[in-house]
């Protein structure tokens, strides 16, 4: 579908990445992740034909994408940019109809075929009910769906999105990821999105492209990248480490000392107690081996603390932490 061969991207005085050989398959959702400044946006804009490559080429259906006539390219590839669109007083329907630009006549008149395509795009993006609403009244999440519908109205084979979840709250992010995944499955469109939502990307992406600051681009299944330690290397900074067991980054704190945590049941309470102790800076260990600082999670929202100064019972996490902070 979309492939690159020995692609070098960047700007005349700054090469961001070179010799990229990437492949984006139809029906696949790929997440592009990496630290800020690594070149995610530059790669997306180069793949979209908005920037010329410094070397190498981008192939769309085997044709050099940067040599395609603009209107032809617009029928095959659509992009959703990260900038918030302020298009004035337009209804969602009219905004989506702009996606038909490559297909309409010189006056931009919409045929029945265009109307059907707009309707279909809005259905796919789950925003048909917003059709008559002016876009400046929409929430960020609704607006993003309309922008995706606009891109779909171009009937592209490849859909590129630059940080589509940037302005959204967590439930809206999950919804958007699921929407994109469903789109790739249902329509066979190849989707590439850049994102900072590592957690969601790990869970929902078919494949990940991992951009490192040194210009390396690693590709693979999310799980492979996690297991190989690639994720950790890319994001490694002072005080952050990747927990392989839970597949997420943890934040190191200066360690105060070891504490053992014992629990009989109530896994949820134990898990959050574990986190609270970690946040306070303790190195938490499983409570099978009793250390000289030891916490037991009791039933009914109670905790017991054993220390060199005896034992005490606490009815809230707050009082437990207050007692522990003495050590």
């Amino acid at each position: 579908m979309l492939t690159t061969s020995f692609l070098t991207i960047g700007y005349p005085r700054q090469v961001l990445a070179s010799n990229l050989n990437l492949k984006l398959r139809s029906g696949e959702m790929v997440c592009l992740i990496g630290p800020n400044g690594a070149g995610k946006s530059t790669l997306l804009r180069t793949l979209a034909g908005m920037l010329s490559p410094l070397a190498g080429e981008v192939l769309l259906d085997g044709q050099n994408l940067h040599r395609l006539p603009p209107l032809e390219l617009a029928k095959r590839l659509a992009i959703v940019l990260t900038t918030r669109v302020e298009a004035g007083n337009l209804s969602a329907w009219t905004l989506v109809s702009l996606g038909r630009h490559p297909y309409t006549d010189w006056l931009g008149r919409l045929t029945a075929r265009d109307q059907a395509a707009i309707r279909h795009a809005m259905e796919l993006a789950g925003c048909l009910s917003l059709a008559e609403r002016p876009i400046h009244e929409l929430s960020d999440g609704e607006r993003q769906k309309v922008m995706i519908a606009r891109a779909l109205a171009q009937e592209p084979k490849v859909l590129l999105l630059d940080e589509p979840t940037a302005f959204l709250d967590l439930p809206r992010r999950v919804e958007l990821f699921q929407l994109l995944r469903r789109l790739s499955r249902e329509t066979g469109v190849a989707i590439l999105l850049s994102t900072h939502d590592l957690d969601l990307a790990l869970r929902l992406a078919d494949r990940m492209w991992l951009f490192a600051m040194n210009g390396d681009l690693l590709t693979g299944l999310p799980e492979e990248l996690a297991l190989s330690g690639a994720l950790e290397r890319v994001f490694a900074t002072e005080g952050v480490y990747f927990d392989h067991a839970i597949g997420a980054f943890r934040v190191h704190q200066p360690v105060r000392g070891p504490v053992s945590l014992h629990t009989d049941s109530e896994g949820v309470v134990a898990a959050w107690t574990w986190r609270a102790l970690e946040r306070l800076g303790f190195a938490v260990q499983n409570g099978d081996v009793r250390l000289h600082l030891h916490v037991e999670v009791l039933t009914g929202g109670r905790w017991r603390l054993f220390s060199s100064e005896g034992e005490s019972e606490h009815t809230s996490l707050e009082s437990l932490l207050a007692a522990l902070s003495e050590f």
């Binding site: 979209a48 908005m50 006539p69 603009p70 209107l71 032809e72 390219l73 617009a74 029928k75 659509a78 992009i79 940019l81 900038t83 669109v85 298009a87 905004l95 702009l98 996606g99 630009h101 490559p102 171009q154």
Partner: peptide, 10 residues
Amino acid sequence: LGDDYARSLG
């Protein structure tokens, strides 16, 4: 939609 989107529309 701005210059960038206009370009992407061909």
